[in-house]
Computed example of a mutant assay.
Amino acid sequence: MTDTDDMPMTSPPGEASASDVARGSGVALWKQIAERIEADIAEGRLKPGARLPTEAEFAERFGVNRHTLRRALATLTEQGLVEAMPGRGTFVKEPPLRYPITPRTRFSEIVSGEGRAPGGRVIASRIVPAATDIAAALRVPPGTDALRLDMLREADGVPLTIGTHWYVAERCRDLDLIAAATGSVTRALEALGLGDYRRLETRITARPADEEERSLLALPAGRTVMVVESINGDARRQPIQFTRARFSADRVQLVVKN
């Protein structure tokens, strides 16, 4: 089927349909479709975070083939208006979440403060000998037993960051079990009497997302992650946590506050 012989289709009231595109107007159908969806986003008919219909549903609604529809969606993606998440669908892109880096950085508080629902789950946990860089960050001898905790954190169900955390195992017994039960590192540390931790150091770099990160963060190929390495300490500034977090670069805006 070609664009010239696609037949108009009907659609529910208030939704874009084949009547919104004009064949023979001199304006390519994919461009008309992109403009119609863009207008629906701008005028609030499609809200930030809303899941778009499938390609098949959109193609039927506009009365075009999927090739035409894909070109329209690709244009909207390039404009930063929609985002395709592998295995999840295509969504109206939300503005980047402002993520302040302060002496007291707390994921759940930050996400809640932005009007979104925080979520988290433990991916894996195990005791490992502290490598040289981990040991230096925690100020313990290399090879000291360290608890490694990997977590995926979300806002409104959208994955934002993968965090790998290391703790001196002897000081943080059962922290992984508490984090798994609560979905929160902060709550786990509070349960161990370490809830008043403070940021001692932050380092920020960026690189292309690897295969595992693309899978967990639902990122298409070619996307970038911001890597935030941080050390948090107790009231005596003794390190209790070293974290290497990988943020989806276009979903989060890091704000460093002095």
Rank of each mutant, 00 (worst) to 15 (best):
D3A: 09
D6I: 04
M7H: 14
M9L: 11
P12I: 11
G14S: 06
E15N: 05
E15Q: 13
S17A: 11
D20F: 02
A22I: 15
G24N: 02
A28P: 03
L29N: 00
L29Q: 01
K31Y: 07
I33Q: 02
R36M: 08
E38F: 03
A39H: 14
A39L: 15
I41W: 00
I41Y: 01
I41P: 00
G44M: 14
G44E: 14
K47A: 14
P53D: 08
E55H: 12
A56R: 14
A59C: 11
F62P: 00
V64Q: 08
N65P: 01
N65M: 05
N65R: 13
L69V: 10
R71Q: 09
A74L: 14
A74T: 15
T77R: 13
Q79Y: 05
Q79I: 03
G80R: 03
A84L: 12
G87L: 09
K93I: 04
K93F: 03
E94R: 13
E94M: 09
P96V: 12
Y99G: 04
P100T: 11
T102H: 13
I110T: 14
I110Y: 03
R116L: 13
R116S: 08
R121A: 06
V122M: 12
A124W: 03
A124S: 13
S125N: 07
V128Q: 11
V128M: 11
V128N: 09
P129C: 05
A131D: 15
T132E: 15
A135D: 09
A136W: 03
A137M: 13
R139K: 15
P141D: 09
D150Q: 13
L152H: 08
E154G: 02
D156Q: 06
P159T: 05
L160H: 04
T161A: 14
G163H: 08
T164V: 11
Y167F: 15
V168D: 09
A169I: 13
R171N: 08
R171K: 14
C172G: 02
C172R: 01
R173W: 12
R173L: 15
D176A: 11
L177Q: 15
I178P: 00
I178V: 14
G183S: 04
A188Q: 05
L189Q: 07
D196L: 04
D196V: 04
R198A: 02
R199V: 12
R199K: 09
L200K: 07
L200Y: 04
T202I: 06
I204F: 03
E212Y: 06
L216M: 07
L219A: 02
G222A: 07
T224K: 04
E229P: 00
S230G: 07
N232M: 08
G233R: 03
R236Y: 11
R236K: 12
R237M: 08
Q238F: 09
Q238H: 12
P239C: 07
A245N: 10
S248C: 10
R251Y: 05
Q253W: 08
L254R: 12
V255M: 10
